[in-house]
Write a protein that binds this DNA or RNA. Structure first.
Length: 735
DNA sequence: GAGTTTGAAACT
DNA sequence: CAGTTTCAAACTC
């Protein structure tokens, strides 16, 4: 497994071949990025080859991974240049992932990268599977350096048919097992990023599976006569293939490897919830186009689809049923994010999903919880962040919580079948009982038809799913047009209506501050609580796990996460609230000078703390603190965050909200901070360019080594930002 | 499980 | 923009 030399050799050969191959050249010509890619690749390779960078691994850099993914996803998103973008993205991903991986020594990156890249590729039919496969293989090989991966990869590359499943599985295996570092990290910290990542992937997979399963059930239940079970599945189809792939491959193996050990014991209900929802959403977004049946199938199947192959549902189900595997997954939170992202239109969906996935991976820890639905998604981020953040920083309890959630989710997944059979109410209750606060969002709307922001699902940018107890629900794939139209209307009124409610202010925070204030993030608008003292979920700030800020008009604020008076970061956040764009710009500017500092801040921001590793969910950590004891984390928190960021299960959703406002931001700071969001939101420019820009690494670019090192800090911080907003932007570009 | 409370969202 | 109504989640019993 761990024969780096072999992998290197093998890898090198294939790479050169690819580069030389007509396809490769063609791609290069198409994408302006190519040069960069090639550079990155080389760098990456070098890094990988150098590979052993124990020091790097030491630092928890889930964030870096996340970032890379985000970037990649964004790139992939580019509608205008599917082929090109895909290739470039893939390459980039692979590189980035590899680089990070090598440095971080965390399998996470590897897993993520491959998965992402794969997912992306798989997602878009236009992509040349072989190319993708090749890239994927490369990344794997380089990263993992595992003999196994290389052979498979080579096979995949050679065959257009590409055996994605095998590749993926191999890659996952390699990643998980191959990297000694990973092992080390695990050993050192049970909740290491790697573990999270794995969990996340697993969760994703599970989610997908669930989604398919549930979806089928839903399809049957569907009000719409026209909808057939198959349709339901179609909805699920939207789910991003990428995620599926990644999760599946990663899940099975990763889970088995490290995660299972760590996670097994932990409960998972929360994760399950989120996962399901998200899965559904994603599937809907991604799957639609291609296939219902296939959709239901595992990630691998998705990949196959891209190639033209049709996976068997059985396979997919198998992992899912295995339950153990699923239970292992910890990504519930991630799932939520993904959903939010997924919502984006078809093309964008992929990207968003990827991003979400990345986020999930990074977040892994929180996953579950969080929010599955969009809202949940972000929360998941927080959770994941908290988890990732660092074992050290975080309290054992907190750290455990996410994992536990994941585990719960996995178990939940196992129980999926049962769950599906159960009535929505029961399901919901179960989920709730399980402890998933936010996991998946399930609404109970009776009059809004789930077409208003009252509906958590709708607000989160996800379609209502089986677990929902809503009546006369129009927030379903079947009514996509209606949903989109409604969204537009709402957005026209308030462009930020679907943006994340919780914005994290990285700038102002300092490590010390972060430690003091659980949540660096703040609610955009602020709450208006009068009776709850901001100590109940009625309060959106509290729900989101963030302290109240100047923007809040609450009375008698006692927010456990930070009172409005005491909030340190209020200024920044307030600015954000006033004008997110402006605020972002400001923050960006501020950050630019102090990239390093910023990174630190971001990490610090995580309430939980440590975590530099996972910037994503500020809320989560904070939430956990309060809730960790017994209460569930607030649902809303996840959704709010997640929704905006990334999950956009609803295809049509463009995520215009964020985009519009943020564009300024992007323009100004494409190079530096675009990562954070603006770029994505803006969705302006060429996808590729945006992507590159978006990715801190690529942008700055840095030499491979630099990327490697730098990525962790920056990316983490940026990632956080991006997650919250980015998803949307990525989606917009298409339009 | 039903009813109440709460505050955001929507409406005027 | 402010006030009111509607809505659904959160909470309580």
């Amino acid at each position: 497994m761990d024969t780096p030399e072999r992998s290197k050799n093998q890898i090198n050969t294939p790479i050169s071949k690819f580069e030389e191959s007509p396809v490769f050249s063609f791609l290069n010509n198409l994408s302006p990025i190519q040069p960069v890619k090639s550079v990155h690749i080389t760098q990456t390779l070098n890094a990988l080859s150098f590979a052993s960078l124990p020091s790097v691994f030491t630092s928890p850099h889930a964030s870096s991974l996340k970032e890379s993914r985000f970037l990649r996803r964004h790139q992939l998103v580019d509608p205008s240049r599917p082929e090109f973008s895909s290739d470039s993205q893939k390459k980039i991903d692979g590189n980035g992932g590899i680089v990070k991986y090598a440095h971080n020594s965390s399998e996470q990156q590897e897993n993520f990268d491959p998965g992402n890249s794969l997912g992306e590729t798989s997602i878009e039919p236009s992509y040349d599977c072989s190319q993708l496969a090749v890239e994927f293989v490369r990344s794997l090989n380089y990263d993992c350096k595992s003999p196994i991966s290389s052979p498979k990869a080579s096979c995949a590359a050679s065959n257009k048919g590409c055996d994605w499943e095998s590749l993926i599985s191999d890659a996952a295996d390699l990643l998980n097992f191959d990297t000694p570092k990973d092992v080390d990290s695990f050993n050192e910290s049970p909740r290491s990023t790697t573990a999270f990542y794995t969990n996340n992937t697993n969760n994703i997979q599970n989610m997908q599976t669930f989604g398919c399963i549930e979806h089928q059930g839903e399809g049957i239940d569907n009000e719409n006569p026209s909808t057939q079970p198959g349709e339901g599945s179609c909805v699920m189809e939207f789910a991003e293939p990428e995620e599926v792939i990644t999760s599946s491959s990663l899940n099975s193996e990763c889970m088995e490897g490290s995660l299972s050990q760590k996670m097994d014991a932990e409960p998972v209900s929360n994760l399950y919830r989120g996962m399901r929802r998200r899965c559904l959403v994603f599937e809907m977004a991604g799957a639609r186009r291609k296939h219902l049946e296939e959709n239901s199938s595992s990630v691998s199947s998705i990949l196959l689809q891209s190639d033209g192959n049709t996976p068997s549902a059985d396979k997919q189900l198998v992992p899912f049923k295995s339950g153990n595997d699923s239970s292992r997954c910890i990504l519930p939170g991630i799932g939520l994010h993904l959903n939010a992202l997924a919502t984006t239109p078809k093309e964008f969906k992929v990207v968003k999903q990827d991003a979400s996935v990345a986020g999930r991976l990074v977040i892994a820890p929180s996953s579950t919880a969080n929010f599955q639905p969009i809202m949940a998604g972000q929360e998941s981020f927080n959770e994941s962040l908290a988890l990732t953040s660092t074992e050290t920083d975080m309290d054992p309890i907190e750290n455990a919580a996410p994992l536990t959630e994941d585990a719960n989710q996995l178990s939940a997944l196992i129980a999926n079948e049962e769950f599906n059979q159960i009535s929505p109410k029961k399901k919901r209750r179960r989920l709730e009982v399980s402890g998933e606060p936010e996991g998946c969002k399930r609404c109970n709307c009776k009059k809004s038809k789930c077409l208003k922001l009252y509906c958590e699902c709708f607000a989160a940018g996800v379609y209502c799913v089986e677990p929902c107890s809503c009546q006369e629900c129009f927030n379903k794939p079947i009514h996509e047009d209606t949903v989109l139209a409604t969204r537009k209307q709402i957005e026209s009124r308030n462009p930020l209506a679907f943006a994340p409610k919780v914005i994290r202010s990285s700038d102002s925070l300092t490590e010390d501050d972060s430690s003091k204030t659980p949540a660096s993030a703040r609610h955009k608008r602020g709450c208006n609580c009068k009776k709850s003292g901001c100590l109940k979920k009625y309060c959106e700030c509290y729900q989101g796990g963030v302290g109240c800020s100047i923007n809040c008009r609450c009375e008698g604020c006692k927010n456990a996460f930070g009172r409005k008076d005491g909030s340190i970061y209020i200024g920044t956040e307030a600015e954000l609230e006033e004008d997110e764009t402006d605020a972002l710009e400001k923050t960006v500017k501020d950050r630019k000078p102090h990239k390093t500092a910023i990174q630190v801040d971001v990490e610090q921001q995580n309430p939980e703390s440590a975590p530099p590793a996972t910037p994503l969910r500020f809320g989560r950590p904070s939430v956990q603190l309060p809730f960790s004891s017994k209460k569930k984390p607030p649902r809303s928190s996840l959704p709010s965050i997640g929704s905006s960021s990334g999950l956009y299960p609803i295809q049509g959703l463009a995520k215009p909200n964020l985009l519009h406002p943020q564009p300024k931001f992007d323009k100004h700071f494409q190079t530096v901070q675009e990562d954070e969001l603006p770029e994505i939101l803006q969705g302006n420019g060429s996808p590729i360019g945006g992507i590159k820009l978006a990715s801190p690494n690529s942008k700055r670019v840095s030499p491979p080594h630099c990327d490697f090192e730098m990525s962790p800090g920056r990316r983490s911080s940026r990632k956080l930002i991006l997650q919250s907003i980015p998803a949307f932007p990525s989606l917009t570009p298409k339009h």
